[in-house]
Design a protein around this nucleic acid. Structure first.
Lengths: 149, 149
DNA sequence: CTACAATATTTGTAATTACGTATTTTAAGT
DNA sequence: ACTTAAAATACGTAATTACAAATATTGTAG
């Protein structure tokens, strides 16, 4: 659906202006989708993002600082986000033996199971293959990378 | 800068997967830029978005429901977001005479002045003309519109 | 070895946001 | 006119987030 209809604006200043709004709007739209899915499993989109990062590292661990760097969305307080995941037993958190300032975070089996359970729902959202070609995706990636300079 | 470097992921499943992350990442990146600018003027990006919508309507007013529909980001409690703008005297809020359920919101001169003051900063952020061509922007818009289906 | 700066994370507190519920007003049906 | 439903917004409360400051540990210069 054209952005003009979504945010009910007859026309934009120019294509660049529209592109900026379109990126933010579509980004929020995707995030909202992840929020809806995550909520079904008693977590939010940030928790989900963290679990995905941890699964990517598994069976290795990773410290909060690295997680923060890699998060798609930096909103939220990492310590408290992890607090909740620990409380739900989805991740383990231990002080690093070599450098006691650091904390090792690792996803638990329960966390892996949860992600596995969520995968079908997520695939549904991530199934943009139905809408754009691989070539389109590649073009999109190039343009977005260029925008961020 | 390539997304791979930004979020330190060696490679992605496929171009589609990367595109999804890229949209959300770039959207957040843009939003963060607006947040930084807004903060300099004691408001946040949502407040700024609302003020822009109101300027677009000026000298007409618009009700909260319509504002909500048009907002790029639906996060936040519109009543309280407006509370703050009213308190800062950047907008006026009055019960609609014809339909007393509705509320007329209009930007004040002070609000218009603030936006005018912010414009140079915002133009800086919005200056993606330096990075992508009009044709690129058009292609990007088409692809994003397709993704949302 | 000691003092000082740097790093990684946590915590306190205030502000913001989410979410369900309440309030007020209009519309519609009988 | 009266009752009920719908619409638009506001509000109470709990959860989340932002921001600054605190804590703990390591690295380093003298």
């Amino acid at each position: 659906m054209k952005l003009e209809e979504e945010i009910k604006q007859a026309k934009f200043q120019d294509e660049w202006q529209k592109a900026l709004l379109n990126i933010m709007y579509t980004g929020n739209w995707l995030t909202d989708n992840f929020m809806v899915i995550s909520k079904k499993y008693a977590i939010n989109d940030q928790h989900y993002n963290i679990l995905r990062i941890l699964r990517g590292k598994y069976p290795n661990c990773i410290c909060p600082g690295e997680i923060k760097e890699v998060l798609v969305n930096k909103r939220g307080d990492l310590t408290r986000l992890l607090d909740k995941l620990v409380k739900m037993e989805l991740v383990d958190r231990n002080i690093n033996a070599e450098n006691r300032r650091m904390v090792d975070v690792i996803i638990t089996q329960k966390g892996l199971n949860l992600l596995a359970e969520m995968d079908p729902d997520v695939n549904q959202v991530e199934n943009i293959k139905a809408h754009i070609s691989e070539e389109d995706a590649k073009v999109l990636n190039d343009i977005l990378d260029k925008i961020r300079g």
